[in-house]
Structure formats: C-alpha cells, structure tokens
C-alpha cells in the first residue's frame, strides 16, 4: 500500500505520555497512509488505547508531534478530532442505548436545516443510506440501541465513523465480545473503509483478525515501539514474539535456591 502518497495521512512522532508515575507511552512513532489498514497490537497495558485516545482528542500527549496530511495539529477535544476528519470507535462502546440508531449515528454532529433547526428527516435518510452501504442487517433506524444485538451495535458504531466523511478511522478492539459471524461482518466493514480510501488504525488482540485485514502491523510493548511488520508476509510467531518480548528477553530459567 505504499503507492498511495508520500505524505502520510497520520504521522505521530516521539509521542510520550505519563499518568502519575506510570510511563504509558515513551517516544512512540506511528504512520498511516490513505487506503491502508494499520494494526496496532500489543499486550494489555502496552499503550494501544492511550495512543488511540490521543488521535481521538480524548487525551493529549505530554511530548511529541502529530501531523495530519503533513500539517502539525493539536487535538484537544473529540470535536476537534472530528473537525480534522478523525473518527473513532472506542473499546467501551460510545453509544446511547436509549437513543435510536439515527440519533446515535449523528450524536454530537446533528444536521440542521436552513433555519438552524434539527433536520431529522435528512439525518434518517443519510442513516439508512450509510447502513445500506455497510450491508448491515439493522431492521429500522428508529429502533433504540437497547433492542439491537452486539453485532448490530458494533455495526452502528462503525457506521458512525462514516458520518461527516472522515479521512482516518480509529477502531479500538472492534471485534472483542463479538461472535464469529459478527466478527466476520465487522472485518468486511473494515475492508469497506479501506476501499473508500480511508486510513484505518485497528487495535486488536486477535491475531487472526489482524492478519486477515491489516496491511501493516505495528507492535507496542511497555509503551514503546517494538517492531513493524508486513501483515501478509510476516509469520504469526514473529508478531507474537514482538508482543510478548520473547525475541529480546531471554527465556526465564528456574533459579536454583541455595540450600
């Protein structure tokens, strides 16, 4: 996928973040190009979600540079991220169960008509269009989210990212807690995003998912970059090794106790 453009869509360099005494990220680099799915993998607490939250405007880095389309940016709020064309699906589903599908899709970015009033009709039309494009099986956009299955809700969460024509989509564990069929559907959605020419950051624990849709795999370990791999050609065990650190650390050996 290097035929895209030379300027990466998203470029993060030397990103650091600490929470109190904990170094969540230390000098992390990440690049994403148009039409590319970059998987961000790593063990628990490797800093994946922290990095995603910085792109989404939920957290701000202590140090480092973020560029979007070659322009240095700061992303102080989720609204700012949206204005920059970044859409995020959070691990903890950011949906409101009491609102219907349309309301959830447009939450925080409602359409208004010429007089500034909320334009429900147009929002519902767009919602139906987007869900049809994603071939999602949601019976009606007027049903509250509490009536939908986990897979359908995830489809709504992904459909949300298409509102307002984003350039970059960040998905934090989109297939966790989904069934096999639902996972397959979400992966199809991700390929759809790539085919639309968007850049995608996919955070996942699931190596099968990662290898089936990602173009490149970036490994984080203890808040640092720990290798970049081509998803198609790299063996499973190499990526696992980078995640667990087995490639660097020596295998622990039993230490004989002195009698």
């Amino acid at each position: 996928m290097t035929e895209a453009t030379r300027t990466p869509l998203l470029s993060m360099r030397g990103i650091s973040k600490r929470f109190g005494g904990v170094e969540a990220l230390v000098g992390v680099d990440l690049e994403v190009h148009r039409g590319e799915v970059v998987a961000l993998v790593g063990d628990n607490a490797a800093g994946k979600s922290t990095l995603a939250k910085m792109v989404a405007g939920v957290l701000t880095p202590d140090a480092g540079l973020i560029e979007i389309d070659g322009v240095p940016v700061t992303i102080p709020t989720p609204a700012a991220a949206h204005a920059l064309g970044v859409a995020t699906v959070f691990q903890e589903l950011a949906l409101c169960d009491n609102l219907d599908v349309t309301s959830n899709l447009f939450l925080g970015r409602e359409l208004r008509d010429g007089r500034g009033a909320r334009d429900d009709e147009r929002m519902e039309q767009v919602a139906r269009q987007i869900l049809r494009d994603l071939t999602s099986r949601i019976p009606t956009v007027r049903v509250p989210l509490s009536h939908l299955s986990a897979g359908q809700r995830q489809a709504v969460a992904i459909a949300r990212t298409l509102i307002g024509s984003p350039r970059l989509v960040v998905l934090d564990e989109p297939t966790a807690s989904l069934s096999v069929a639902q996972t397959a559907e979400v992966l199809v959605h991700i390929e759809g995003l790539r085919d639309l020419g968007l850049g995608v950051v996919l955070i996942s624990h699931n190596m099968t998912d990662v290898r089936s849709v990602a173009d490149r795999v970036e490994v984080l370990r203890h808040g640092r970059n720990n290798g970049s791999f081509d998803a198609r050609s790299t063996g499973y065990e190499h990526i696992i090794a980078a995640i667990t650190g087995a490639s660097r650390a020596a295998t622990p050996r039993p230490v004989p106790l002195r009698s």
Partner: peptide
C-alpha cells in the same frame, strides 16, 4: 423532541461518557 439541545439531554442521560466522547 425536536432540537439538538434536547437530543443531547437524552444522550447524556443514556450514556454520559458516550455523549462526551461523541463531542457533546
């Protein structure tokens, strides 16, 4: 029922953190 402000009140009551993450 028909304004953005009203929709945001319902969103906050339904899932406060989701509303905040959505830019409300």
């Amino acid at each position: 029922g028909r304004t953005v402000f009203g929709r945001h009140i319902y969103a906050i009551g339904g899932n406060r953190s989701a509303a905040a993450l959505s830019g409300v």
